[in-house]
Amino acid sequence: MTDFYTAPVLRQDHRPGEVLRTHETEISALVDSTRTWQLVYVSADSRTELIPVTGTVITPRVANPRRPAPLLVYCPSFHGLGGACAPSQQLIAGEETLDPIIAALDRGWAVAVPDGENLGITGLGSHTFLAGRAAGHVALDLARAAQNLPEFAGVTGPVVLWGYADGGRAALWAATLHGDYAPELDLRGVAAGAVVTDPAALVEIIDSGPWSALGLAGLLGLSRAYHHLPLRHVFTADGHRAAQRAETLSAQILLAQYQQPLGHWCERSDPWNDPIWRYVLARENTTGFDELRIPVHLYHGRRDSIIPYELAHRLAADLRAGRTLLTWQEYDGDHLDTAERSALDVVNQLNTFLT
């Protein structure tokens, strides 16, 4: 499969959502009930420049002939910065959480899982973690690509979006960009749990704690997304060496090996307040979350130690103020408990958006 993930050369006449390669494969736990394809397709980065990306499309073997199957674009949470962390590879290896996917397949939906910018595709550098614009493009373009597969016979059904943590951020960005970027998609609603709405605020909160490596990962991801800016000037010499190592690692290894505060690797203790970083973080915060005109379902664990519960309430208040049709559910659990317990509830809520 190495050749499949090799970066293709894009031409000026390529279009977002165009399928470049497909490969039918198998997910061992789902092999009896589904068909699975890995895709290389065209999308756009944070500056809307064309990029190749990868993803997975899973369909029930028995389709409903009376109507097109709804398509769920499911955006996973942060897996790491290195290419081997791609969900498309984790799914085949049996290392990806399947509960959300199975809950959707049981409804008769097709499921599309984007890898994210620079995950999967080799030779393009590290994943652009926290780059919301790129994540939104990649999710929408996978919906386009899935509906262009011959197996869909050119018939387009309704689309819903779902993500948790950084995946929830990607789903909300996709919903925000949908009207201008992919208006032809029949997007019916979005579900997002434990959403990172303000990366700078989150990094400041988790710095010096057990999740501080996520701050380093965010700095590396956004510096890759905005590689035309000198964002890594904040690193010390040790920081540059640490960054080079970290760019290839999974989330688990990052959290284990990089527990120092972000300032340990930087010239200043608060690199998020560097002027160039303030510009980038402002771009990544300037969304239309409060102006969404599709239904939104938010959920969060009251004991979430990674993404504070209060940030979710602030987002909910902004959405309500913007007159978004909002549903809310909270769980008496931490970050991981909530992710595990919420799958059926979320799919049931998304189903109301489709009916």
Rank of each mutant, 00 (worst) to 15 (best):
T48M: 15
P87E: 06
A104E: 05
V196E: 04
E291Y: 08
R302K: 12
S77M: 10
D180C: 06
L185F: 07
S250M: 02
Y258T: 06
A139T: 13
G116W: 08
A174R: 09
H233I: 08
R314Q: 13
R133C: 07
L326G: 09
T54D: 07
R47Q: 14
V190N: 03
R268G: 06
E204C: 02
D13I: 03
A69D: 10
C85Q: 14
G167S: 07
V53E: 00
G108C: 00
A237G: 05
P210D: 12
A84C: 08
G163E: 10
P295C: 08
A217H: 07
R268N: 11
T248L: 06
D99N: 13
T324E: 02
D238K: 15
S46C: 10
D318W: 05
W109D: 01
C266D: 02
G322Q: 07
G80P: 02
V234S: 10
R169T: 15
N273S: 14
H264T: 10
L222F: 03
F235Y: 15
Y74A: 11
T197E: 05
V155E: 15
G288E: 13
R283Q: 14
V42Q: 01
A170R: 01
L325T: 15
R268E: 09
H233R: 14
L177I: 08
L292I: 08
N273E: 12
P70Q: 02
T22C: 09
I294C: 08
D207T: 02
L30H: 01
E117P: 00
T236P: 07
P100R: 02
F78Q: 00
T36C: 13
P271G: 05
D13H: 12
L255P: 11
A194T: 04
A339Y: 12
P295G: 09
A134Y: 01
E340C: 08
I205C: 12
A145Y: 05
W265C: 02
A110S: 13
T48W: 13
P275F: 02
W173Y: 14
P271K: 01
V160Y: 11
A112R: 04
I92H: 10
P87R: 14
G94M: 07
H178D: 05
A104P: 04
S43L: 01
R323N: 14
L216E: 03
A194W: 04
T324N: 06
T197Y: 02
L326H: 11
D304G: 10
Q89I: 15
R314V: 12
T355D: 15
N348H: 08
R232S: 12
S28R: 15
D32R: 10
H300P: 06
D166R: 11
A225Y: 01
T197Q: 04
L172A: 03
G17I: 03
V42S: 01
A135G: 11
Y181M: 05
G55A: 10
E291M: 09
A282Q: 14
D45L: 01
L298P: 04
D13G: 01
P76F: 06
H264Q: 11
G132T: 00
V203D: 14
A317Q: 14
L119E: 05
I101D: 00
W109S: 04
